[in-house]
Nucleic acid binder design. Structure first.
Ligand SMILES: [Mn+2]
Ligand SMILES: [Mn+2]
Ligand SMILES: [Zn+2]
Ligand SMILES: [Zn+2]
Lengths: 144, 144
DNA sequence: GGTATTATGAGAATGATTATCATTCGCTTA
DNA sequence: TAAGCGAATGATAATCATTCTCATAATACC
């Protein structure tokens, strides 16, 4: 019962340099990666609970850890809650101030420049957020 | 008593096209314009109360109106609260995920591109938000 | 093993933003 | 100038995402 190959109790194989991810942190990352779009912590919590037992506080803590690790990025949703997604994702939106609708931008204008960003201070950039606000066509008409 | 030059009871001179601003909305805009950096609704509320009587709800409603009017812009602060500033302002930051410190970018990389943004849908852009996240020099060292 | 350290969860606490709703204001019209 | 009416206001309650507490469990380290 020591050498059992069943119990994958090992949360992570003790590599050396990077802080390892716990079972929960891995689960959070896995869910984010299999989702097509960003999730709020609450939504993430809901999805995770269908697969395993986990506390809400743990989800929040995992997200924080994953961000520090450069594995996850977050942006603020229209309603204020934070939306999380794997660091690979590079999407941005146009959001209407009147109806709240968001339109996905077909290309990130910053991605290229990112590196060129003239920094006055040494800083290691992990990701960026970019969003445009204004009025969608229909809303420019409506009064009020 | 009609031509009194004292009572500036007129909230706005009835121009024609744009919806006029109420006294309170003007006050909110005025404060934002005289501030060097973005303010949260709560801070704005505090400043305003020193000058006049106004309700917190009104501050929130004024900000919403001013945004629809293209006079004010908002972004999300690190702690979640929304920060507001006059539309003219075009500042962006580098924010450290570890210590939370923010560094003002000396130049907006998007401003130029803004117009070029390839839109798949007709949309009238009022403003944009842009922020970089990562680790500041000191924080890249510290363990944890 | 045996202890020090970190992670976890349940639930309370916090705090910004919204929703209510009764009252007041401002403009139009008679 | 007075009455009418819809928008604006403000005090307050309600929401709700996120954080904090603290006792317990898991894991690392020797
Ligand atoms: Mn991008
Ligand atoms: Mn800009
Ligand atoms: Zn719209
Ligand atoms: Zn830092």
């Amino acid at each position: 019962m020591k050498n059992d190959s069943l119990s994958q109790k090992n949360t992570t194989r003790p590599t050396h340099h990077l802080p390892h991810l716990t079972r929960n942190q891995q689960a959070v990352l896995a869910v984010l990666r299999q989702q097509s779009d960003a999730l709020s912590a609450q939504e993430l919590y809901g999805v995770l609970r269908e697969q395993q037992a986990i506390g809400l506080a743990t989800v929040y803590r995992a997200l924080e850890t994953l961000k520090l690790q450069g594995l996850v990025q977050s942006r603020s949703g229209t309603n204020g809650e934070a939306l999380h997604s794997p660091i690979e994702q590079d999407r941005h939106y146009l959001t209407c101030l009147h109806c709240g609708q968001s339109f996905l931008l077909d290309h990130c204008p910053v991605h290229d420049l990112a590196v060129q960003v003239h920094l006055s201070v040494p800083f290691k950039i992990y990701y960026h957020t970019l969003e445009f606000f204004g009025l969608c066509e229909p809303c420019t008409h409506q009064r009020s």
